[in-house]
Amino acid sequence: MPAIRVLVVDDSALMRRHLVQLLQGQKDLEVQAARNGEEALALVDRFDPHVVTLDVNMPEMDGITCLARIMVGSPRPVIMVSSITEAGAEATLQALSLGALDYVQKPGGTISLSLDRVAEELITKVRMAAKAGRRGAKPGTVSPLPVAPSRFRAAAPVPVSVPSRPAGGRVATAAAGDPPGLVVIGVSTGGPHVLEQILPALPATLPWPVAIAQHMPRSFTGVFARRLDKLCALAVQEVTGQATLAPGNIYIARGDADMLVVRRGKALHLASVPASEAHAWHPSVTRLADSAGEHVPPARILCVQLTGMGDDGAEAMAQLKRQGARTIAQNEDSCAVFGMPNELIRRGGASVVLPTGAIAGQIAKWLNPASLARAS
């Protein structure tokens, strides 16, 4: 297979040199570098990179402006290289909403030592971005490379079969004062862009609360929750300790930790707990979905599996579907990375497979009073 062409854009000569050396050490990567946004745009035309890594803060032309120019003139996968400050998080989230595929936190302190800690992440994301680009144009991963046909196309929702008897496992029963149900959303790479389309489309009258595990570092989740809160009719908050589950709210798991549904007295809460070493991704979708199944009757759980690498949450959601939950998998054409939804589908765990633009409407349809009455 031809080498993956990578353009590194950073105004710091030291950072630029280290990133180039890191990527050039991989036999499947061909690398060039630019010092600023103007140079980057020229090299996008001449070098035609499959993937661009783009610094957020640069003189002459900052990363956000450069990204916007790339997406309009010659769209392709872009990975932002961001600082861990709140300002860096704000800028990175803006970049993701403009079409960047993903981000890597810029190392602090001694660059050579810090880069060792992000090397594997950066290389993995560059390869993933190149693969996404070859698959075809996606929101956040638009590419001039040929588009392969999708195995899953947008279709009308299929009927949901709710078994009269759950298939194995302990099934929770509702307690007085519990919320009427719970929407559980799992998402990773490409998630901020997709969530900013889905969550603002949910009505303020949605009768069930929404709990989200988005793979994201701690420095980003609070900023992301505040950003979503300005966009949504429902109130959005980051869960840093405990929060009582209540309708009218969207709860974002704190980054670098896990979020669980727990019972405290007569009420259900969400609790932020230390990340489990037994789980590869955090916040863990698997732990969130499993804990929901322990405390909420499956027929009152609606799971949504969105874009992301890996299989986090797939088996847990498939098990909930077998016990009576309803599930949505995002379709391939609208995913930045089809890994997590595909794993749910492969396990027979998707009630419906839908594009991004149809997901909020399906949630609202399933949770309207008439539909809930028929399902009960």
Rank of each mutant, 00 (worst) to 15 (best):
A350V: 11
L270N: 04
A325P: 00
A68Y: 00
M61A: 08
V187I: 15
S114L: 00
E120L: 02
A3I: 06
F338H: 13
Y103W: 13
V78Y: 05
V78I: 12
F224M: 13
F152A: 03
R264E: 15
H282I: 10
V285R: 01
V239K: 04
A318I: 11
Q237E: 15
C335G: 07
V160I: 14
V6I: 08
G88M: 11
A95T: 00
A253L: 07
A137W: 11
G255V: 03
S291G: 01
E294K: 11
I250L: 06
G88A: 09
P149Q: 12
H295K: 11
P207C: 06
G186T: 11
I79W: 07
T327Q: 02
L306F: 12
E315A: 15
T356W: 02
L288E: 09
G357N: 11
A292S: 10
A3S: 14
H282R: 14
A132P: 10
A68M: 09
P163K: 05
G324D: 10
G108F: 13
G140S: 04
V194R: 02
R300M: 05
E90W: 00
R69H: 13
P274S: 13
L306W: 11
M1L: 12
A373S: 12
E121T: 14
R117L: 15
V194Y: 01
I64P: 08
T85R: 06
P298Q: 03
V273N: 04
L22R: 00
R5P: 06
T85S: 15
V8P: 02
D55I: 06
I345P: 07
A13S: 12
M216A: 06
D62T: 09
H193R: 14
P179Q: 11
S164E: 14
R117W: 00
D290E: 15
A225P: 12
E332W: 07
R17Q: 13
L354W: 01
G348P: 06
K321P: 03
A325W: 02
L113H: 06
V9H: 07
I79H: 09
G313Q: 10
C335M: 09
I79K: 01
S143Y: 02
A364D: 02
A235N: 08
A130M: 01
P209Q: 08
A292F: 04
L195F: 13
L182Q: 01
